[in-house]
Amino acid sequence: MAKIGVFFGTDTGNTRKIAKQIKKQFDDDLMAKPLNVNRTEVADFMSYDFLILGTPTLGDGLLPGLSADAENESWEEFLPKLEDQSFDGKTIAIFGLGDQVTYPLEFVNAIYFLHEFFEERGATLVGQWPTAGYGFEESMAVVDDNFLGLALDLDNESALTEERLSGWLKSISDDFGLPL
């Protein structure tokens, strides 16, 4: 079985694309095929000690899900299934997509919601990313000038995605045992 699980929520498919870009860099022994949380069983999710989680931020800073007008169930519906699980001993890194121009007051807020959920359940969270170079006004996902995970803006800064993703994967490589 692969060592690292990659799970994502999505609405437009962009978060899925990033998850697939991450997977493309690693073999099947190291990293499993990315799975949408709306097609994931709790036992499969919990079978990994290392998790990379992806999410877009929808509307006014919401996790994707039906109440955020997503077309399908997503993180909003999956997280309640995990409420009674312990994440002690699990290492989690989060990446999030947002639009810092159209939504400058809640850019990548969904990273915060995932971070808080898993931190409250004992996970070790890694992968903070500097806010330098971004043009948003506010984000719940910022602590001490760092995002709580990798922030990507495919709408306005898609040219920076590959560089940011590569740098972020290098930054979590020791925590995940990645060969970078």
Score class of each variant (00 low, 15 high):
residue 28 D to K: 15
residue 29 D to K: 13
residue 30 L to F: 02
residue 31 M to V: 13
residue 32 A to Y: 04
residue 34 P to Y: 00
residue 34 P to V: 04
residue 40 T to K: 10
residue 40 T to G: 06
residue 41 E to F: 12
residue 45 F to R: 15
residue 45 F to E: 10
residue 51 L to H: 04
residue 55 T to I: 02
residue 56 P to Y: 08
residue 56 P to G: 14
residue 60 D to A: 12
residue 60 D to E: 10
residue 60 D to V: 12
residue 61 G to E: 12
residue 62 L to S: 11
residue 66 L to P: 04
residue 67 S to V: 12
residue 67 S to G: 08
residue 68 A to R: 03
residue 68 A to I: 14
residue 69 D to L: 12
residue 69 D to I: 09
residue 70 A to F: 01
residue 71 E to P: 08
residue 71 E to S: 13
residue 72 N to H: 14
residue 72 N to C: 05
residue 74 S to A: 14
residue 76 E to W: 01
residue 77 E to G: 05
residue 78 F to S: 00
residue 78 F to R: 03
residue 82 L to N: 03
residue 82 L to E: 13
residue 86 S to R: 08
residue 88 D to A: 13
residue 88 D to K: 14
residue 89 G to Y: 05
residue 91 T to I: 09
residue 91 T to A: 13
residue 91 T to C: 05
residue 92 I to G: 01
residue 93 A to H: 11
residue 93 A to C: 10
residue 94 I to W: 01
residue 96 G to T: 08
residue 97 L to S: 02
residue 99 D to T: 10
residue 99 D to P: 03
residue 100 Q to E: 12
residue 102 T to C: 10
residue 103 Y to E: 09
residue 106 E to V: 06
residue 110 A to E: 06
residue 110 A to N: 03
residue 111 I to L: 04
residue 113 F to G: 01
residue 116 E to N: 06
residue 117 F to R: 05
residue 118 F to E: 00
residue 119 E to R: 11
residue 120 E to N: 14
residue 121 R to C: 09
residue 125 L to C: 14
residue 125 L to A: 11
residue 126 V to T: 15
residue 127 G to P: 05
residue 127 G to H: 12
residue 128 Q to W: 10
residue 128 Q to L: 02
residue 128 Q to H: 14
residue 129 W to T: 15
residue 131 T to G: 10
residue 131 T to L: 05
residue 134 Y to E: 08
residue 135 G to M: 14
residue 136 F to W: 04
residue 138 E to A: 13
residue 139 S to C: 13
residue 140 M to W: 02
residue 141 A to I: 00
residue 144 D to E: 07
residue 145 D to G: 07
residue 146 N to Y: 07
residue 147 F to P: 02
residue 148 L to M: 14
residue 149 G to A: 09
residue 149 G to P: 07
